[in-house]
Design a protein around this nucleic acid. Structure first.
Length: 361
DNA sequence: GAGACGTGGGG
DNA sequence: TCCCCAAGTCT
């Protein structure tokens, strides 16, 4: 525990922070002053994991309009949920979201549990989300720490430990800071402060209600906190996509990805494996082709950055007279006018776009 | 504990 | 263009 940390900050911080929050805090679709719907709180927290507020807003509205209650969501198919989640990323969240809804209905009569421990036992809910839901939806003084609060706390107390130790230290401090009165407002206020004022770069300390008690500010070193870890370079991978289209019907061959791993359960256009060596040898590429045909290279390429590698895809295309080929395990044909029903990740939308540009010329 | 896991926006 | 980063979780 930092030496300069005092218990009295509990009062100081809340009394400084809450007036600022009630005046400048963000209006968000899932945020209401009193008695928020736990389903809304939970749904927003799942979507907000590693995802910006601006992006989440659209998806949140779509989901609650389509599935107004956790019962409705539990009654949806996984495929429907994956489709609605397309473009939002981290697709394991969509699988966990559906599994969690089912479990809440089956094991909790459709009522979310109210304790941190019980919440953390649900799919997709980890330490952060369990605490956040408990505090915001159920008014529990839970120790909520996300990257925003972690950064704010690191600066307030000039914490020099590096993650992941910082996360634990921040949790300990937040456990003391969080008030029993309106804890949900308090943690949301800290998150808004981190998102609007105490930002990673160029924080606007002149507008900060806590600047008077901020130790990093007193040292003139605000941006030095929290300590950052140097990131290693990410590898580059290559793949070749096979755009196979029926001559008459114009149906395109698609397939579903495995239910585990990258883009799990999402729909893709068949391709070679993605590997770190570029694909040069034709025979090597076409060993992976869904059918032996005369493939034509489509000009241009798709570059896509995932969290842990860069991907460059080339596209080859071919037409096939009839549905001669036996579709393998996860392959199926789809007419382009029904593409909007497929759960395509953004990467595949890029592929479709480049193909359309070429074929329309 | 470290790596896997998406995407879009800002500087 | 490139790098950083965003209300983390799971294995």
């Amino acid at each position: 525990m930092p030496k300069l940390y005092h218990h009295s900050y509990r009062i100081d911080i809340a009394s400084l922070l809450l007036p600022w929050f009630y005046r400048y805090g963000r209006a968000l679709p899932w945020r209401v002053l009193n008695n928020p719907d736990p389903y809304h709180v939970w749904l927003s927290e799942m979507m907000l994991q590693q995802t910006t507020v601006a992006t989440v807003k659209k998806y949140f509205e779509t989901f609650i309009n389509r599935w107004p209650t956790v019962h409705d969501l539990a009654g949806a198919t996984l495929d429907q949920v994956l489709h609605a989640w397309q473009g939002l990323g981290y697709y394991a969240r969509a699988r966990n979201l559906h599994a969690c809804a089912v479990k809440v209905v089956q094991s909790y009569q459709g009522q979310f549990p109210t304790t941190v421990d019980a919440l953390e036992g649900l799919p997709g809910i980890g330490p952060y989300s369990a605490s956040a839901i408990a505090a915001i939806a159920f008014q529990q003084p839970a120790s909520v720490v996300d990257t925003n609060i972690e950064r704010v706390v690191a600066r307030l107390f000039a914490l020099t430990v590096s993650p992941p130790k910082l996360r634990q230290d921040a949790r300990t401090i937040m456990n003391d800071l969080v008030p029993t009165k309106r804890p949900g407002d308090f943690v949301q206020a800290l998150m808004d402060l981190g998102a609007m004022i105490c930002t990673p770069r160029q924080p606007t300390c002149l507008d900060c209600p806590l600047s008077q008690v901020c130790q990093a500010r007193q040292h003139g070193m605000v941006e030095a906190y929290p300590i950052k870890i140097a990131k290693s370079a990410i590898p580059k991978k290559y793949g070749v996509v096979f755009w196979l289209q029926q001559q008459e019907s114009k149906a395109v061959l698609l397939r579903r990805r495995p239910l585990k791993g990258l883009l799990a359960g999402m729909i893709e256009i068949p391709s070679t494996p993605w590997r770190t060596e570029a694909w040069v040898q034709h025979h090597e590429i076409f060993d992976y082709a869904p059918v032996k045909l005369n493939w034509h290279h489509i000009p241009g390429s798709i570059r896509h950055r995932f969290t842990h590698f860069d991907l460059e895809l080339q596209v080859v295309s071919a037409n096939i007279k009839d549905q001669h080929i036996t579709t393998l395990n996860q392959e199926f044909w789809c007419l382009p006018q029904y593409f909007n029903q497929q759960a395509f990740p953004t990467l595949m939308k890029k592929v479709i776009k480049i193909v359309n540009q070429t074929l329309l010329e």
